[in-house]
Amino acid sequence: MGVPNALPKVSSRVMDVLSDIIGQVTPDASVSAGLDAAGEWCIAFEAPNGIKFNVVTKGTCWLRVEGEPAPIFVAEGDCFLLTRCQGFTLGTDLSLPPLSAQEVFSADQNPARVNEGGAFSLVGGRFAFRSKQAAHLFEGFPVVVHVRGDEPSAPVFRRALEQFVDEARFDRPGGRLIGERLAQIMLVEIVRSHLLSSNRPAPGWLRGLADARISRALSTIHAAPERKWTLSALSHAAGMSRSHFARRFRDVVGVPPLGYLRSWRMLLAFNGLKTTQKRVGEIAQSVGYESESAFSTAFRRVNNISPGTAQRKTGRGVFTERSDKA
């Protein structure tokens, strides 16, 4: 699986932080029934649970998302993500009375067909996340992330999605691991595309990566999350005064520097408890807590469960039952 050409506007430091973040996000992913349509049509979809992703494999249509000011024209080769729990409509003519997606996809066929199909098709699925912190990482994304077919990341995204769909439909050895990695690849490509666009992200780590000084502080945190970081040390890494750094970090990332550090530590701890055999005390030390009691209190405050409970719970596989369509 190839990678896009050089990304001249994104430093290696930023990409290291991006790799770090995406590497901690283990999504539960499901593949939707595809859509094959023809003629004039319009379909209304209920709000998805999680991040919805689709690739248009043939034809063109319009996408309208509830609460967004204008519809988006999508064409063959385009990819789009819907990052909020908001209903949406797809169609050649959005003024038509929409069909219900539940009705269109009620038949036991894949892809679902409208007007016998043949002129338009898409495939896609959905990401959900196994922890609240992982889901919060994507709150800074726009409601719709549209990657046009001629953008550098689009071919990689399409190939990853095609293989992702293939792995989901056939129960082959290693399919779960491959599915998780492909899901992460698709997320990385979407973030790369958005970082290189002219669109300004909402406050969050994504905007932080695009800020030269704040990205230095993020890189410092991610390089050694177990260290006893202070506001002075992080402002020094960013090359700013303490007061200016504190204001700018909050404006750009949406939380104070030490609040971001705490959230990142909790995500690392959550994943460590789920994926390793380490004891709670070892996990606590690995994310900068000398006291297991203090760690447990912080963990419960963020996750609403104790570290021990989180460790005992088993995660679901990457390919869940098909629960959403298109």
Score class of each variant (00 low, 15 high):
residue 109 Q to A: 09
residue 103 E to C: 05
residue 87 G to E: 05
residue 83 T to W: 02
residue 139 E to K: 12
residue 111 P to C: 10
residue 144 V to A: 03
residue 92 T to K: 12
residue 113 R to T: 14
residue 154 A to W: 04
residue 107 A to F: 10
residue 145 V to T: 12
residue 118 G to R: 00
residue 126 R to M: 13
residue 84 R to Y: 09
residue 90 L to V: 08
residue 100 S to F: 02
residue 106 S to H: 13
residue 104 V to T: 08
residue 110 N to E: 15
residue 122 L to E: 08
residue 101 A to M: 07
residue 145 V to W: 05
residue 126 R to W: 08
residue 107 A to H: 11
residue 108 D to K: 13
residue 102 Q to W: 05
residue 130 R to C: 05
residue 151 E to R: 15
residue 85 C to R: 15
residue 132 K to C: 08
residue 143 V to K: 04
residue 108 D to V: 11
residue 131 S to C: 09
residue 127 F to I: 01
residue 111 P to K: 10
residue 119 A to D: 14
residue 125 G to Q: 01
residue 108 D to Q: 12
residue 139 E to C: 08
residue 85 C to G: 09
residue 151 E to A: 13
residue 126 R to H: 12
residue 119 A to I: 02
residue 90 L to T: 04
residue 104 V to D: 05
residue 118 G to P: 01
residue 150 D to Y: 04
residue 121 S to N: 01
residue 119 A to P: 00
residue 123 V to T: 08
residue 98 P to I: 06
residue 115 N to I: 03
residue 148 R to C: 09
residue 100 S to G: 05
residue 91 G to E: 00
residue 113 R to D: 03
residue 142 P to F: 09
residue 88 F to C: 04
residue 132 K to L: 14
residue 112 A to L: 03
residue 89 T to G: 03
residue 102 Q to C: 07
residue 144 V to I: 11
residue 119 A to M: 07
residue 135 A to E: 15
residue 148 R to S: 09
residue 113 R to S: 11
residue 120 F to Q: 03
residue 115 N to H: 13
residue 131 S to R: 03
residue 96 L to P: 06
residue 129 F to Y: 15
residue 142 P to A: 10
residue 111 P to V: 09
residue 83 T to S: 13
residue 153 S to D: 11
residue 132 K to V: 13
residue 130 R to D: 07
residue 139 E to H: 12
residue 143 V to Q: 07
residue 116 E to L: 14
residue 146 H to K: 05
residue 133 Q to H: 09
residue 128 A to S: 14
residue 146 H to D: 07
residue 82 L to E: 02
residue 102 Q to E: 12
residue 111 P to H: 10
residue 88 F to I: 03
residue 130 R to L: 09
residue 121 S to K: 05
residue 142 P to D: 11
residue 89 T to N: 03
residue 129 F to P: 00
residue 104 V to G: 04
residue 136 H to L: 14
residue 99 L to I: 02
residue 135 A to S: 15
residue 99 L to E: 13
residue 148 R to A: 11
residue 97 P to E: 11
residue 111 P to D: 10
residue 136 H to F: 13
residue 108 D to W: 07
residue 116 E to K: 15
residue 110 N to L: 06
residue 125 G to R: 00
residue 99 L to V: 02
residue 87 G to N: 03
residue 105 F to H: 08
residue 152 P to Q: 01
residue 109 Q to S: 10
residue 96 L to G: 04
residue 112 A to R: 00
residue 118 G to T: 00
residue 84 R to A: 14
residue 136 H to D: 13
residue 151 E to M: 12
residue 122 L to F: 00
